[in-house]
Design a protein around this nucleic acid. Structure first.
Lengths: 212, 212
DNA sequence: TGTACATCAGTGAACGCGCGTTCACTGATGTAC
DNA sequence: TGTACATCAGTGAACGCGCGTTCACTGATGTAC
């Protein structure tokens, strides 16, 4: 959704002009980069205000606390996901299937390299039971899981083993894809390269979803 | 390692008597449960001291900060892992293989239910680049990854596909197992039960490691 | 085009609180003889 | 068994700092006529 379609408001509900929108944007960008360089634990409203070179009072005009900013950043990250869904549609047989599975894995790798700091906080908060972050993660995951399940059904892989249950398999595949970027840095392990990781994950994904 | 083998000392290096050991233990236990009920972000030295009903000064006798306690807790969690390694050894063909893969998945589910709050913090900190937590995670993962790779080699699954590289496949399997408990609560998704999740993950694990 | 007014946007400065941290001390336990 | 001394363990109280948060205000921008 673009700002035109759903006008962004400040915390008192007032619609924002161009100047305010830019300030809000800047606060979000700065939060993102501070989150990347220090951890969540070291991130305070005062730090953000200092980095933006503004007063803390300005921060509170747009966000209620640090988590609120991260929440908005996570919502933005969600907006990139529709492009991914298309990859699951269409033919996954043969060379086409290899290509698509590879694209999916590569997408996730890039997505996490880009949004890792924000997604990590989202996942931690969701795992700890924060409802707002759980909703956001659910919104991100459900279409992907659905697309995977649909593919399994289409390709007849469902029922190929009595123990494989499509929704669970989709969750398992999500797990692999979500950790792809993280394990890139566990690297040195046996000399795995980022490409190996992507190729192998793609292969496991393709096999699991198409049953071949 | 037992306390006898490697006597635990306070921060000034003094060996601890029974009374001190008990206090230290209590601080760790309280930290663990506070971590489970609130998040890491809401966890302060003052909170811990209050819960233990002691002075903050006592806390500092044993730990340098909150993260230090979590680090010790994560180290303890590592001590439970050798039991897991055995499951990878031996025969993974036929019914035996089904049983072993199921046991591995069930082990991880239980392990994360037990140590989830600590392991989540460990992973976040490691992902954010904290070296101490990275070392701890590596120590936990390496034996498991090695056992998986050995199994793949033994069972001849290596080379079954030119795209599957054993170290990468082992990392992918770790990802599934590490997220098992987390996705239990994404549940409601298509009515997946905890058992489905374990069974399906076990199946994917077995197939990937044995190539059947 | 100019002027007056309304609303938007930003902030300086202040407040109080609670946290992290330490010091100097007391009380508990162990050990030597 | 008793006494003296050494070490271990625990803590009350205090300090200062920096954070979160808000208020009352100023300046910037938009709009009507």
């Amino acid at each position: 959704m673009s700002p035109e379609a759903r006008p962004i408001a400040d915390l008192s509900g007032r619609r924002l002009g161009a100047r305010a929108l830019a300030k809000r944007r800047r606060i979000m960008d700065v939060t993102r980069s501070l989150l990347a360089e220090r951890g969540l634990r070291e991130l305070r409203v005062a730090d953000i205000a200092r980095s933006v070179v503004t007063s803390p009072a300005t921060f509170y005009q747009y966000f209620s606390d640090v988590e609120d900013v991260v929440l908005q950043l996570a919502a933005e990250a969600n907006e990139e996901l529709p492009a991914l869904i298309e990859l699951f549609e269409g033919d996954w047989r043969g060379a086409e299937g290899h290509r698509r599975s590879r694209d999916v894995a590569a997408f996730f790798m890039a997505y996490w390299v880009d949004h890792g700091p924000v997604l990590r906080v989202r996942n931690l908060a969701a795992d700890e039971g924060d409802e707002r972050f759980m909703a956001l993660r659910r919104a991100a995951m459900e279409p992907i899981l659905d697309a995977m399940v649909a593919l399994m059904q289409r390709s007849g892989s469902v029922g190929s083993s009595p123990w494989i249950q499509p929704q669970s398999a989709a969750l398992a595949m999500s797990a692999i894809l979500d950790r792809l970027a993280a394990y890139q840095s566990v690297v040195d392990y046996g000399g795995v390269s980022s490409d190996d990781l992507v190729d192998t994950s793609a292969q496991i994904l393709r096999r699991t979803l198409t049953g071949t």
